[in-house]
Design a protein around this nucleic acid. Structure first.
Lengths: 153, 153
DNA sequence: ATCTCGATGTCAGGACTTTGACATACGGGA
DNA sequence: TCCCGTATGTCAAAGTCCTGACATCGAGAT
């Protein structure tokens, strides 16, 4: 019940469910749900997967680096890293050579597990991209980036 | 450290941080953070605010309705509703007249508090919209809707 | 040399959310 | 009429994440 697709008003939507913020939340919730479902079959959480992907791209990132990049606090990032470390997917030196930052690196198994899930995750990305007119993709990426930039200020 | 804006590759981005999913996450994280900050000053959480907004638009929504609309579980929705009820912002009949659903309604104070925060929240929406070329807004909303639709299936 | 400041890692506690389960209530079909 | 599937509300337990706080480390200023 309570379903009333407000029959799209002209342009300046007054319905809250037509605001950019709400649509953004809805899309993100759907993405999160889809990724959770797929990653669970591989024994990974979304933050864990994101961390693996980032470490594959930028080996040696510290906990603080990863926390910023995955949009969680350092504390949560620490939990993620310990989980990955216990699972044997990453390694971190027990002592920091420079500051306090301890650079993380993927293990052999880390690379393997990442490769195993990438196909499934990228399929989700494909479903998203496939739902959008190709000529709009670039603009969409740009706009999302601008939204983030405008709010992060 | 570890900051290397990958100097935007031509178009088909291979960098994970250029994927639709990542940008979506980033924009949503920025929005959530901005809203948290503003709403905290008014003693409300994001789900609580969303619930008030929805109840203003559709009086009488049930807990299950609200949970779906705010993208949380019924259990979380229940917690939100009890919080709002204790704060005196909404009312719910103690007994259901039809099924088990107990329709929620804003109290006088609920309307007042909502009105008080709307200005601040809408200013955030304005910051987002303002960062995007006006002629692209409609397309952006459409694309976000399609992304959600493609994933919710 | 010393001090101050920012960044990092970590701990403790609490807040929020989810998973899983159960009981109740309506509605349609056998 | 009776049964079964769906929807709803709720409880208990666990997980996840965050806030607040503290100690350490490096770099630049004093």
């Amino acid at each position: 019940m309570m379903e009333s697709p407000p029959s799209q008003p002209p342009r300046p939507a007054r319905d809250v469910t037509q605001h950019v913020g709400y649509l953004l939340k809805r899309a993100q919730a759907a993405l999160r749900s889809a990724m959770d479902k797929v990653l669970r079959e591989h024994g990974l959480t979304v933050p864990q997967y994101a961390t693996l992907e980032l470490l594959a791209l930028h080996p040696g990132m510290s906990n603080a680096d990863l926390a910023r990049a995955t949009f969680v606090t350092r504390q949560s990032g620490n939990v993620v890293l310990r989980g990955l470390q216990e699972a044997g997917l990453i390694t971190r030196p027990s002592t920091a050579d420079h500051g306090r930052a301890r650079p993380a690196h993927l293990t052999e198994e880390g690379h393997t597990r990442l490769a195993a899930v990438q196909a499934a995750v990228y399929a989700i990305e494909e479903r998203m991209v496939g739902a959008i007119p190709p000529q709009r993709i670039a603009a969409l990426l740009t706009d999302l980036d601008r939204i983030a930039g405008a709010l992060e200020k």
